[in-house]
Amino acid sequence: MKSLTNRSKVVSNKQMTFWERIYFPAILNGMRITFGHLFRRKATVQYPEATREFSDIYRGKHVLKRDDEGRERCTSCGLCAVACPAEAITMVSAERKPGEEHLYREEKYAAVYEINMLRCIFCGDCEEACPKEAIFLTKELVKSEYQREKFIYGKDELVESPDPAKRVDVSKRQTKEVLEFKKDKRYKHNK
């Protein structure tokens, strides 16, 4: 019968030759192979002393960016929450009061912004959906916790510090091509 997949193999039950039956050549060959491994480079990353190298565009913990004047960029439009396939993002909007112009960039802001890090699949769709360049994924990892509740990160953990020295650098994620690409969201699937 003709095979459908071309992957089938004829099973061979041939008798082993004398040379194969005494096993010693095979054993010596095996020992040669294992001996070669003694001097190979070790695959281990010695964790606390050394860390694995991360790509600049690694998708780790999120950050909510501030603008150059230290105002929160997020306007609580909810596009990230809509884009999120895991439904990990929730937020509560609030209106900016007079006198808060130094805190929030636009008239509307997120009073509560929560990401459930247990739900999040770190796909980066929130970053792509954001029209205000407010949310980015970073190289940082989400730390392990003992309680599930602690994995719901609020604004206290997500918003970056207003201190210019402690700002999170996302310039590597915003190359010219990325910015150009982000301009026209209609064709993003062609990328």
């Binding site: 294992t34 491994h37 003694l38 190979r40 480079r41 070790k42 695959a43 281990t44 010695q46």
Partner: peptide
């Protein structure tokens, strides 16, 4: 140790 080295570990 030897087991580790044979398996590319430390």
């Amino acid at each position: 140790k030897v087991a580790g080295w044979f398996q590319d570990r430390h």
